[in-house]
Nucleic acid binder design. Structure first.
Lengths: 205, 205, 205, 205
DNA sequence: CCTTAATCGAGACGGTACGTCGTGTCTTTAT
DNA sequence: ATAAAGACACGACGTACCGTCTCGATTAAGG
């Protein structure tokens, strides 16, 4: 376990981090439904009151823990491979990355309880984006950057693309996450090569 | 409320129906998280043991209640308008129909708690389909019928369509349900005219 | 401990008795302040909810436990020794008896926490008497019987005794309980021989 | 309320007095069980740590607050009316006085919760006396002074009075306080005229 | 028509977790 | 050095809901 003993009394961020880590570990080992405010607190070497001072209930706590585990850096660094197709593939993979890097045990633990997994994954957009205020645009912002570069290369005519098409790769990715609970590289390739790129080509004529 | 008074003691299907109706009403009025086995039982004028004899837990009960409220007939009667585009639009509308016909109060009640709504809607495919065993195919079965008729009319070349493209309209519909919590006719039109039909056309060359 | 295992599920009075016994044992071993609803429940092999269904809080529970442990039978069988002095002594001893027979450990456990002890003992009149409605009279009823017999023997002139004198032995007994936390036979003798009997004699002239 | 604003920072006795006053007010308004270290501290415009530096726990704090509110001067000035009977009556009244002068709101607040009232009143002897070490004698010290003066007047033969008789008036007064929660002048008269004085007379022969 | 087995209505039970509150300690900052 | 402010560790509170079980009343079905 991760308890700490008689050192100096932890507080603030140090304590908060310990709690979120403990939450994540509990989640991984015992799953969402077996995770208790009590168990998370005990594992973190503290007590429920401290948790409730920060998060109103279990799902808030788990959200926070997930948000911390999912490094959001890769949202910002937009791939630049020189081709639209590869940029989109790279971008989608980067989006899936954090879900994979939560750690195999954690994922396995969460996967044990599909309906929870679905809820969490469904909430993942909000989880990731909550910090940015313009929720709508942020989602497609990276896609827009990618598409604009492609337009400069003459690969795409942006004005002919509806917002729905632009958000299509991400939408299908999310749907895949929700439905399949796992995303393979071939699935990403199918989405990009079988659906997105044909639409791009169709929009050029 | 729906309690029944000192008449003859209900049992079997009559009782079961009363329970599921009560469950639906509780769901609509108080939401999923405030629905308890106790509250459903009380409202139905019976007790928990009777419920547990039929359903193992709350989600089973709610599933059953939803399944009863969602008339499944429209899954089977596949539209036949004479054009692929209209068939698909009609089919998608038919799929959304039950969600709308759950009744305005119920919907409103469920919408109060978005994450529950998402969970339920995400589970709706299983809810609707559970009776059929071949889950994978059933989903696209109707689409296949529609597409085959279109192929006979020369509108589409089926062998050039990947499974992912075939299920695309439904996938996007589900994603729309989950994300937007409401589906407009224009959204359906956008999906069909802006995404699906272009892909069909692209696959003809 | 007193837990019971996988027998048939206890309920009603059997369960209640088990709880009160467990409460008494906890009280004796760990004292009032260390007694918890939880600990009492656990020791009785049940859970808090069952306790709270019967008693609103800890003090109610303890009151009930004490009331059960203090056999009230001896209140009724009035001593008849043939002399007023001995009757009163016997009566006072009988009143103190239950307090002693709660069991030495129990007493010792309670004595550990004087302020609790005082509270409890102060409440003892109600504990003992709650069942009788005419609280005032019941207290002195036994004394009246004793005094009437003494009057027949010519030992006392009842009409010259004020209510306050009649209840004096019991009052002093209670005060002794509260103050000294223990009652010796000599204390009873002092009360009767040094205070009550002189007043009786004084009232004869 | 009694909070103090951004003046100079209080300390020492000024602070202490503010705390005890706040405690008394909380006690009066909300009763003993609703009084918390936190509420007392907040009302005094300070914080718990300051209280705990002075008193170990709630009951210590309340004791201190009561001790401050009960003017103890009248314990020392022993009445001297010229007759034993009147001296004792006056003494008993003086003993009851502080309980009455705690202030009407305070009393009313305390009376709301009878068992607390009993606890407090039962503890009152210690409250009042704690400063003197010889607990036993202090109680009867004043009575002894009164009785000695009476002996000089020939009203009583001290050597024939047992300690129990000497402390009798106070004992009955305390019992009255505990039992009746209020003491009338007639009650005092009954104790003195109906019980104590007859014993004195009886001890003269 | 009468008996019998099954199910219902009602509610207590054993259990887990909830979210809150109070105590007493400790840390930090300011005076 | 102590006050002010407030977080922390701990433990108990009283409640809610779960899923099981007991008990007596009722009812459908079979002899």
């Amino acid at each position: 376990m991760d308890e700490q003993k008689k050192g100096t009394r932890r507080r603030g961020e140090i304590l908060e981090e310990a709690i979120l880590n403990a939450t994540m570990d509990e989640l991984a080992e015992n799953g969402y439904s077996h995770l208790t405010m009590e168990s998370a607190a005990t594992r973190a070497g503290t007590n429920k009151a401290v948790l409730y001072r920060r998060w109103a209930n279990k799902s808030e706590l788990v959200m926070a823990a997930l948000r911390k585990w999912i490094p959001t850096t890769n949202i910002d660094n937009i791939p630049d491979t020189g081709s639209l197709r590869d940029d989109v593939v790279a971008y989608l993979r980067a989006r899936v990355e954090p879900v994979k890097t939560i750690g195999p045990q954690t994922i396995r633990g969460l996967l044990m309880e599909p309906q929870v997994w679905r809820t969490l994954v469904a909430a993942m957009p909000q989880i990731i984006q909550r910090r940015s205020e313009n929720k709508e645009n942020k989602m497609t912002a990276a896609m827009m950057v990618i598409l604009k570069k492609a337009e400069l290369r003459g690969e795409v005519r942006l004005e002919k693309l509806s917002p729905r098409v632009i958000s299509l790769p991400l939408d299908l990715l999310h749907h895949e996450l929700i439905t399949k609970q796992e995303i393979t590289d071939t699935a990403i390739a199918e989405i990009v090569d079988g659906i997105f790129m044909p639409l791009i080509h169709a929009a050029r004529q």
